[in-house]
Structures are given as C-alpha cells and as structure tokens.
Design a protein around this nucleic acid. Structure first.
Lengths: 252, 252
DNA sequence: CAGTGGTCTAGACCACTGG
DNA sequence: CAGTGGTCTAGACCACTGA
C-alpha cells in the first residue's frame, strides 16, 4: 500500500488535478458526475464533494446545480510556491533566475522589522541583501530578515545557488502563509546603484511577512522591482474574491 | 418565518461573522466547540463544519486538530464593490471621497486603449480625467475610457457628485469582472501638477479593465495613487489562493 | 484520559437542468 | 420526467491536544 497518511479526498483532488493537467479533460469539458466519481473512487458522496470543493476553490472547475461540473477556463493565477518564490516565478515565465548576494549578516533589527517579525526588543535577526536577476539582468533587490532560528540555516546554504524558499522548506521550515503589501517607492542610493537606475526612480515594492501555520513569523522581506520588468495582476468578479498573480510586464 | 431561501449553514456563517464583527469574540478568543455549535444551532455536525469551513476560507477563524477554533487576526479583504469603487473604499476606511473632474471628452482613443477595450479602429470613446480626493486632499488621478454605449450615460451624470461605478450599475450596466494590473510609474507633468508632487516622483499605478459577465469590455482605467496614501495587500497560504485588498497606508 | 477537530459513510430530501 | 448537484442528518472511527 501507499502512504496511508493522505486522506482519501486529497488523493481524489490530486488525481483529478493531474487528469485535468494532462489533458484528459479539456477546457469546457464535462467531468463525471458525483455519483460516478463515488463509484470509481469507492468513496461516499461527502468525500467526493470535499474533493470537488477544493478544486472549485482553486478555480479549476466550475458548474452549477443540475449540471455536471466542467473544467473552467484557466484563470491567470499562480500557486503559492510560484508566488512566493522568485526562482519559481522566473521559471514559470520561461526566464532564468539569478542572484548576487551582497550581504549576509547577523544584527539587531530596526524597530519596523522587529515589529513585523514580532520579536523581543533584544532579539537579533539574520539579514540578507540580494540582487535578483532575470536572464542575467538586474530585476529586483531583496532585503530579507529572518529570526535567528530560521536565519542560522542560511549560513549552511549557498545563497547564490538559488531559491531560499525551496531550501527552507526542505529543511522543514513551515512557510505556510504570506501577507503581501504592494506600493511604489523612490529608489534610494543602494537601490539605484544595484539596479542601475537614477536615485529617485520609481520602483515597485512588495513587502512580505511569511508565517507558519500556527502564526509564527518566519520572514520579512522588502523586495523592489524594476517596474518595467514585473507587475502584479489581480482578477475579481462580483461573485468571487480576487485571485492574484505576479506577471511579466508587457514591454513599454 | 423568515426567508427560507437561505440554507442553514449560511445562516450560521452570517451569525458567526456578525458575532465576531460585533466583538462578542475578540482576536485570539476561542470559539464554541463544534459540538456546542451543533446544539445551539440545532444542526448536524456536517452543517456546522460547512459553515466553519467558509469562515476559515475567509481567514476569519483558524485552528487545528484537537484544539477549538479561534478568531484569527482580521484579514484585510474587500468585497468586489469596495475594491472596484474608490468611493466605497474611502467610506470603508472612514474617509470621505471627493472628486474634481478635469475633463470629459469624446474622442478617438490611442492604440493601447483601443486594444484594451477591444474596439474597432474607428470607434470613439468617452474619456474622463478626474482627480480623486481623500478628506479633501489629492490622493489619486484617474484616466478612464468608456465605449460610447456606456460613456454616453456620463453626460447625464454629475461626475463631481460621486461614484461612477455605482451610477452605472444603477443604470443597468453589468460591471461584473475586473482585471487589475499594478505597477509603479514616474509622475508625468499632468500627474505632477494635479497630485502636487514633482515630475518623476513614484506613483502606484493600477490599470483596470472592467467587463460584463459575457466578456464585453465596459471600461479601461489608469489610476495613479500617491503611494503614501494607498497600497494593495494580498494574503495567500499554501492551501488557499490569494485574496486582495487595497488598504490605507500606514504613515511613513 | 476526556474532549477536540479531521475524515468518512449511508441515506435522505430538495431545487434545478435537460430532454 | 430522470439525472444532476445542493443541503442536511446521524453516527462512526481516528489523530491530536491538553490536563
């Protein structure tokens, strides 16, 4: 038998997700009815509905009363991983992510960072200043702060080798939820020098706090993008809440 | 009896939402156990769990196995209307929206606007240039273009009186879905003069295409915010997709 | 240990869709 | 009309939490 840890409804969603991804059912195609899925999966209707509800919430399927569910038009929407990881994002748009670490230090944070991470006054953090590249060209500058329990893992990691997000997850760090604030900011001297723009040039800033499932703050980051290289898009309707994705800017 | 159209689980979510909003339970407080909610609502556990799942997906409550659910930190999340309408948004944060219409004109659009609205080459649009205020101070500059069928309604409307979004909906215009692109841009001369910042100052830009349920494009807008007055926030988790809101910036 | 939420079942009735 | 999904029930077993 397989890993019996995974609940049945999740096995079902995984199976359906794969079938859709692999093209067994295409956009607009009708899925098997709930009753038929029950039979195929040898599950009760509640379990099947639990699985379908999950796919519904991901926007993969749609459908209404009296009609079988169908494969929805693929919404421009990114998985948690793609949205949280610059490396994953770059790959998803067909570019290669690069990184140039300028500083990795342990120090006492300023009040703002300390507040974001909900740290004691005397707690130290590990701070990383890293230039991110797309196909070799500067695209974003990240200033990331980690509490010591998390940050110490970075001293055993080559921060020029790739995704810290992926590395920390491999190390068992429970990066579960992200809160992102997006605004615009003028480039300061450091931004200007590393990103190759004049001081005062507009940058697109994303400030992010990442926390564990239990709410413990694990990371704070201030990421500044060249606005002609990246932006954020959101779609919403009067029936659904917004879903978000970060996409490559159209030239201009 | 009441409207019996509303299902029981939804009545439950509504009730719980109100109790939380009205402060019966505060942030971090523990909610009644599922068993107790069953008793109080005279409902089965499945129904109660359906209601709780809804609140969970909205981020209102959290909690894990073996522990009762608790009220989570309030997620900033906005309805479609609040996100689409500056006027509604201002009200939701306790400020008064104002507007100063600088121009309302009918003309042939440039290629970019024409493409966004999916218009024929020779079609004209109604364009609006309007400064938006928060408590009397300039906060955002909007450049909005409407296809003629929609735009002509504006000539019967006082664009200095309030929400165009609300007005158009009253007129039966089916503003159903929005696609928003967020980036940063340097203030041009018009921006600079009306918003009271130097030319080249960073502005937070939201470009938005609004469409009907059937996909017809009804509006394109380029809105430029003073970045210290507004920003966008998004939350996501590894289980749920992102939800978005535009929030008032903390002073800085 | 008792109490909690997580999962699952089997069956029921209703509202809606399509032929 | 038959078939579909939407709602609801009653009961069961498990995994986890905290006293």
């Amino acid at each position: 038998m397989e890993n019996k840890k995974q609940p049945k409804y999740q096995a079902l969603t995984t199976w359906l997700r794969q079938e859709i991804a692999s093209g067994t059912w295409h956009e607009g195609d009708v899925l098997p009815s709930e009753a038929e899925l029950c039979a195929r999966a040898n599950a009760s209707r509640g379990t099947v509905r639990h699985a379908l509800a999950q796919l519904r919430s991901e926007g993969l399927i749609a459908g209404g009363q009296g009609k079988p569910p169908f494969v929805a038009q693929q919404v421009q929407s990114q998985s948690f991983t793609t949205f949280m990881s610059f490396t994953d994002w770059a790959r998803s748009i067909g570019l290669e992510a690069g990184q140039d670490t300028r500083e990795l230090a342990q120090r006492r944070p300023d009040a703002f960072v300390s507040e974001q991470l909900e740290l004691d006054e005397d707690a130290k953090v590990v701070q990383l200043l890293r230039l991110r590249l797309l196909d070799g060209s500067p695209a974003m500058l990240e200033r990331t702060s980690f509490p010591q329990e998390v940050g110490r893992l970075l001293f055993d990691f080559d921060t020029d080798s790739g995704s810290i997000f992926a590395y920390l997850r491999e190390q068992g760090v429970d990066l579960y939820r992200g809160k992102h604030t997006i605004d615009a900011v003028a480039a300061d001297e450091v931004d200007a020098q590393l990103l190759g723009v004049p001081v005062g040039a507009p940058l697109l800033r994303e400030q992010r706090v990442t926390a564990s499932k239990s709410g413990q703050k694990l990371e704070f980051s201030d990421d500044r993008y060249l606005p002609h290289l990246a932006n954020f898009t959101i779609e919403n309707t009067s029936e659904q809440r917004a879903s978000l994705s970060r996409v490559r800017s159209i030239a201009g």
